[in-house]
Design a protein around this nucleic acid. Structure first.
Length: 188
DNA sequence: CTTGGGATGGTCT
DNA sequence: GACCATCCCAAGG
């Protein structure tokens, strides 16, 4: 299983957000491996998107959104949580990223439970801050390259999902006409 | 099952 | 000095 190529991320952020659904997110920690299928994403763009961290200007915190696609943008929020994004944007645009909001756990479930301090499998990775906790993602992963099969990367997962649900983005109160939250339901 | 409040700190105004 | 792309638990139906 090889990582998705850089070119996958060098397209419109919304298109990438949709196509990331059903892909596999892999986290390697030492000899162990954690993985899951991406089930919910959100697109955040640039000047046309007031809800985006990149809307105002490039800062120390948000600089990753303006830099190379296919890398991680991790930020800290609500005083206790990290959120994991993948930088993705059309080459014509200056900034953009896809927030990974939820995954369906596959491998390494015991490690995730340990990292979370919880044993309820249903709620291991069904929120943006939960999945970073389960996969042990923090500021240390800021800017790392997701196309190189190293500690964190994304590969092909399941077949292309049939039905994608588009909604308004969670916790965002501007640009509510933009249905840029995307999710799938795995039939299992 | 749903609801409400508390925890907690980096970042920008 | 307020804002947040949040989560968790306890309490109430």
């Amino acid at each position: 299983m090889n990582s998705l190529p850089r070119s996958f991320y060098a397209r419109d952020t919304i298109k990438v957000a949709k196509e990331l659904l059903g892909k596999q997110l892999v986290r390697k920690i030492g000899k162990s491996r954690i993985s899951g299928i991406i089930t919910e994403t959100e697109a955040y763009r640039h000047k046309d998107d007031p809800a985006s961290h990149a809307f105002r200007k490039k800062t120390e915190r948000t600089k990753a959104m303006f830099e190379e696609v296919g890398r991680a943008y991790v930020y800290f929020t609500y005083g206790m949580h990290f959120c994991f994004n993948v930088v993705a944007k059309d080459p014509k645009v200056d900034a953009g990223a896809v927030l990974i909001r939820a995954i369906h756990p596959e491998k390494g479930i015991e490690i995730m439970k340990k990292n979370r301090g919880k044993s309820d499998e249903k709620s291991l990775t069904d929120g943006p801050a939960k999945l970073t906790q389960a996969l042990d993602i923090s500021k240390k992963q800021y800017g790392i390259d997701l196309t190189r099969n190293l500690e964190l990367f994304i590969t092909d997962g399941i077949e292309k999902p049939q039905k994608i649900i588009a909604s308004t983005r969670i916790g965002v109160n501007t640009a509510t006409d933009n249905l840029w939250n995307f999710k799938i339901f795995l039939n299992m």
